[in-house]
Design a binder for these strands. Structure first.
Length: 420
DNA sequence: TCTGGGGTCCTAGGACCC
DNA sequence: TCTGGGGTCCTAGGACCC
């Protein structure tokens, strides 16, 4: 059996932990640049607000109802997520962090010694007691069914946080009542296709024959079908390394100047390199992209990207940044108002062994690696960007994102710790 | 005026090989 | 007029997830 532990409206719940006056009040959390709503409490949903909506379009609803607004604060949410994971790991050995607010537990073997429902309920209660974050848990023979269970647990209070789908009648009942569009793995296109063939509930889909599914859907569709029928086939891989690493941002203000664009790309490149070192990995390809503002049809539009291949797999900030800037200069066009840039690292592989290059222009790789370690240590101890590249520019720049409603880093920065 | 960011996996089709 | 069979590798784009 698998359990899915899902934090309810996670970002908004974290903000509420540190602003207890907001319990049972409407709260929304915005995307980067204070653009769109990315998380909202049920009280905010009840006012007609939706995930994904640009905040400026619903300004009057927000003002009229005194909705609390927060800029996104990933550092804070990630710190809280780690705390929750630590609590789960005290009870369950195999935990897979599927996303910042969801974890799968492999419960294989526990059923012999525990009542799984009681076990997961006491875990949910503990998370709630120790972190003040409410969670919903689904328990089922496959991950897809566990996800469905967690949605029921969230929707109906009667489950007291845990919904079990552990026998055939419960499975069929759940599939009959659940919304097909909300099934994990069924997106807009698959939904349209299934509707076209007269399938409107997960149960009708699950009851189709294997040959029908194989004819009309591709591999991911077949997997979902198997999972809904209780055959686990979505893999739990413990060891994980990214296939790609990306840092990109929309700018607070549009820019056209190459120097400023370079500063943004250098900043994103060094952030990527930092993430790469965090996984003990290196990359061989650096891609840069730039975009104008697609919402401004009065301005000339321009989007482009370029890649540079490095001689050898590396996580060196200096090397990755130079490669990114080289790629940027090859696609830069003057006279464009740019709204967004980004850096993507691919061809990622473990740090060792690395295939050396006979003609590698960098002769002191071991020392360079030590330099990166030293910089990382200093930045970890004294704060991000204590040491940075000069090309990344000064702190205040027009392209830096807006975040006017950011709460403090209560869990990670001593100076910002909550005062009572 | 203001419109997010970061991922994975799969497939079709092109380009190439014998 | 007739015009094979069996492969690999790569990439762009689609579909999906949070």
């Amino acid at each position: 059996m698998y359990a899915l532990i899902d934090c309810n409206t996670f970002f908004a719940s974290v903000e509420r932990v540190f602003h207890p006056g907001l319990k049972r009040k409407p709260v929304v959390v915005l995307s980067n640049n204070d653009g769109c709503i990315v998380a909202l409490t049920s009280e905010a949903k009840a006012l007609g607000l939706h995930r994904g909506e640009p905040i400026f379009k619903v300004k009057d609803i927000v003002e009229r109802n005194g909705v609390s607004i927060f800029s996104t604060n990933m550092t804070l949410y990630a710190a809280m997520s780690r705390r929750i994971t630590n609590i789960i790991r005290r009870s369950v050995q195999h935990v897979e962090n599927y996303s910042i607010d969801e974890s799968f537990c492999d419960l294989n073997g526990y059923e012999a010694h525990f009542n799984l429902e009681e076990m997961m309920r006491s875990l949910a209660d503990r998370i709630s007691l120790w972190t003040d974050i409410p969670v919903s848990v689904g328990v089922a023979p496959t991950k897809t069914l566990a996800k469905i269970g967690s949605k029921f647990a969230k929707k109906y209070k009667g489950y007291r946080s845990v919904c079990m789908i552990d026998d055939e009648p419960k499975r069929r009942k759940a599939l009959e009542l659940f919304d097909l569009a909300d099934v994990w793995g069924i997106g807009r296109h698959t939904l349209e296709r299934l509707n076209y063939y007269g399938i409107s509930t997960p149960l009708e889909f699950a009851d189709k024959s294997e040959s029908w599914v194989k004819t009309h859907l591709t591999k991911p569709g077949v997997q979902t079908w198997l999972e809904l029928n209780g055959h686990p086939c979505i893999d739990t891989s413990e060891v994980y390394r990214n296939q790609s690493i990306c840092t990109s941002r929309s700018f607070g203000d549009m820019i056209s100047d190459l120097t400023q664009l370079e500063a943004s790309v250098a900043t994103f490149a060094s952030s990527c390199a930092n993430k790469l070192r965090g996984q003990n990995a290196g990359c061989k390809t650096v891609t840069v992209f730039v975009q104008s503002n697609r919402f401004r049809d009065d301005l000339p539009q321009y989007c482009n990207s370029a890649s540079t291949t490095l001689v050898t797999s590396t996580s060196d900030t200096l090397e990755i940044t130079s490669a990114a800037l080289k790629a940027l200069r090859s696609i830069y066009r003057p006279g464009i108002m740019y709204k967004k840039s980004g850096v993507i690292l691919t061809d990622i592989a473990p740090n060792s062994p690395v295939q050396q290059d006979l003609f590698d222009p960098i002769k002191n790789r071991p020392q360079r690696a030590e330099l990166m370690k030293a910089i990382d240590r200093i930045n970890q101890r004294f704060g991000l960007k204590t040491i940075q590249l000069a090309v990344e520019g000064e702190k205040e720049q027009p392209w830096k994102i807006k975040c006017e409603h950011r709460s403090g880093n209560y869990l990670t920065v001593l100076d910002e710790i909550l005062e009572v």
